[in-house]
Simulated scan of single mutants.
Amino acid sequence: MPQAISIPDEIAAFNDEIVAIRRDIHQHPELGFEEVRTSALVAEKLESWGIEVHRNVGRTGVVGVLRAGGGNRSIGLRADMDALPLTEETGLPFASTSPGRFHGCGHDAHTAILLGAARYLAQTRNFEGTVVFVFQPAEEGLGGARAMIADGLFERFPVDEIYGLHNSTITPHGHVHVSPGPVQAGADFFDIVVTGTGGHAAHPHAARDPVVAAAALITALQSIISRHAPPRESAVLSVTSVNSNVSYNIIPETVHLRGTVRTLDGPLKARIAERIRAVAAGVAVGHDVRVEADVRDAVSPLVNSAEHAQAIADAARAVVGDESVTTDWRPSMGSEDFSEFLAHVPGAFFSLGHHGDIPLHSPRFFLDEGILPVGSALFSRLVEERLKPAG
């Protein structure tokens, strides 16, 4: 029988308010670098609990700083705030009021969880040192972590270690997954424009058809993974969009392709990017068209420190019990830009399971709010253990 989850009385007492905050954010979702309302709400709550607040870090990010005792060590805790460009189809009474914007990845819950931990730690102050609460914008592929780092995040708010979490529907409620080493893939995004000469579909010999060239390019791109990535290395290349003229009888001038590459190895990711450009150049010659390939480094692979993954596991066992902690997390080919923080500061990232079987990024995704106090308790326990008062 799994051990009962241990939630501090203080967190249980104000959990209804944390749930209300999450629903407010859910009802008013904002896309990356547009989190003006969300940031203001976060800052207001932090200030009301006596936490030092810094706004507009990395454009729309918020940083809270809480000090206690005389310790000189510091810990960073991070939550992301942005929504997805989706229209919600859950039918919830607090569903999104903005068509085309939806918290379909649970970032509203991550923000509420970190606010819950901030309130508890500000109330109890059972630690010695500094906690830096990082509320990050634009996690969904827009580079919010890099924006905060470029804005001097770690120079202005230095931390010795940093932690983050993500909700999960593939593990049971309250189950924590954390492991050392690579746990999330790095990502590149690519845009490719194939330009030929348009013409009448009945006379293709008089045109240089970019559609046929694009089709050949899509097929050729798949060979990069099968013939250039080592068999024991995980790598994925997906073309996710093909756009051209919509008429039946016109050969278009251009075709636009876009897609993504995911790998767990940084050097391999760079080699695949080189091959995309080389394959594109070869197709251009073979089909007598022009091909412009823009491949962009979006997110680095996420690699957990062994020490800090163990710290999460230890804290989690105290909150959710031994049977609800797994430390052999199989790497995911999904990406998470918390990796950018880990490139500068050691730390670890973990997943927290909850009820439900609808996957993330679905317009019908439904988050189990029962994990809100669990996540707050996990973050809080982590701080209290890592910044434990002497004696």
Score class of each variant (00 low, 15 high):
G144H: 08
A280G: 10
A187G: 12
N15M: 13
G91L: 01
L221T: 04
A207F: 11
R23Q: 12
V261K: 02
N249H: 11
A293P: 03
S223W: 10
P93H: 14
G141T: 01
L92H: 12
L387F: 01
S98W: 14
I170K: 15
L66I: 14
R227Y: 12
L268T: 08
E44D: 14
D288E: 15
P158N: 13
S48F: 06
G356C: 07
S335C: 12
H256G: 04
G334D: 03
D357Y: 08
D80A: 05
A298I: 05
Y120P: 04
F14M: 14
G199W: 02
A187Q: 15
D188T: 01
P2K: 14
F154Y: 15
G64H: 08
P158M: 15
A215N: 09
E233T: 12
G282H: 07
P204E: 02
G391W: 11
S305R: 10
A313W: 08
E44R: 08
E385P: 06
S179T: 03
H200K: 11
P2M: 07
H308E: 15
I358M: 06
R101P: 00
A377W: 03
R156I: 02
I7P: 03
P182A: 11
L77I: 10
T195C: 03
T124F: 01
V131R: 05
L268D: 04
G286L: 06
V42N: 09
